[in-house]
Structure formats: C-alpha cells, structure tokens
C-alpha cells in the first residue's frame, strides 16, 4: 500500500466517530496498543522535547527502507504517534520526504500538529523527514 492508501484507510476508520470524545478514546486505544520503544533507545539523544509532552524517536535503516520506533509520555500523543508510524515507517527515504500528511487535517486533529501545540508531534514529523533526507544523501554517496 502507498502512503496515500494508508492515509485513506485511517480517514475511513475515523469517519465512524460522531462524537469527539470517541475519537480521543480511539486514539487512547491506539496509544495503548503501540509497542513501547526499546528501552535502549529511550534516551535523551532521541528525545524531542515539547513543552507539554515528550516524544522519543529512533530510526533504523532496513535495506532501502527506514524503520521508525517512537513513543510519547502522553497517551493521546502516543496514539497520534502510532498513526504517524503506520504512515511513515518502513518506507523509502524518498517516500517519506515527499509525503503530504493530509490525514491529520482530514480526521480533524490538525490542532495537534500546529506549532502552537507544543506537544512534540510537529517536531517529530520534521525529524522523520530529516532522517530520511540524511539517509538519502548517504545512499547517494555510497551508490
């Protein structure tokens, strides 16, 4: 599935919720289900500091793809992290760099990715793209 396919899938999943609190309940569920990040990666070097909540992000090269592990101390943020991983992890650097993440807006959670909500999510997306850029540069040099 392409990044776009997954985004459509997520939008569909969220379309069943009429009440906002149900959306949040689902995010909490997703957050609870997210594999915790390996303890050895839950370190300050991998920490993206939001003012309100923190996110840890660790990239791993897997062939021509990048695997991400991530976690947050706030569960709603963790749910959103789970969605971002579903869309952006296990993708090629180029796919990640080019990705237009419109699903957040479409499911009505855009405010969580706005710069005024300093929960670390926006910085996480930026960081994922930066890793992708770095890996792409590396592979070009190697290639």
């Amino acid at each position: 599935m392409t990044i776009e396919d997954i985004q459509q899938e997520i939008i569909e999943e969220f379309s069943v919720f009429e009440d906002w609190m149900d959306k949040y309940a689902y995010l909490i569920e997703l957050g609870n289900d997210l594999e915790p990040i390996d303890a050895k990666y839950k370190i300050d070097d991998n920490l993206i500091r939001g003012c309100q909540s923190r996110v840890w992000l660790h990239p791993e090269k897997d062939g021509d793809k990048i695997l991400f592990e991530a976690e947050s101390d706030a569960i709603i943020v963790k749910g959103l992290v789970a969605l971002l991983l579903r869309v952006l992890s296990n993708r090629s650097p180029k796919e990640i760099i080019d990705a237009d993440l419109h699903f957040i807006d479409d499911i009505g959670l855009k405010q969580h990715l706005s710069p005024t909500r300093s929960n670390g999510l926006l910085a996480m997306v930026k960081q994922m793209k930066l890793y992708a850029l770095a890996y792409e540069k590396l592979s070009q040099q190697e290639g």
């Binding site: 609190m21 309100q52 101390d73 569960i75 943020v77």
Partner: peptide, 14 residues
C-alpha cells in the same frame, strides 16, 4: 496514570 497533556486535551473537549 493520566498525563497532564491528555487531561487538558480531554477537559478542553468537554
């Protein structure tokens, strides 16, 4: 067991 960010977000929704 509830992070203050989660609590604030949900309270706001209410």
């Amino acid at each position: 067991g509830i992070h203050s960010f989660d609590l604030g977000t949900l309270l706001d929704q209410l």
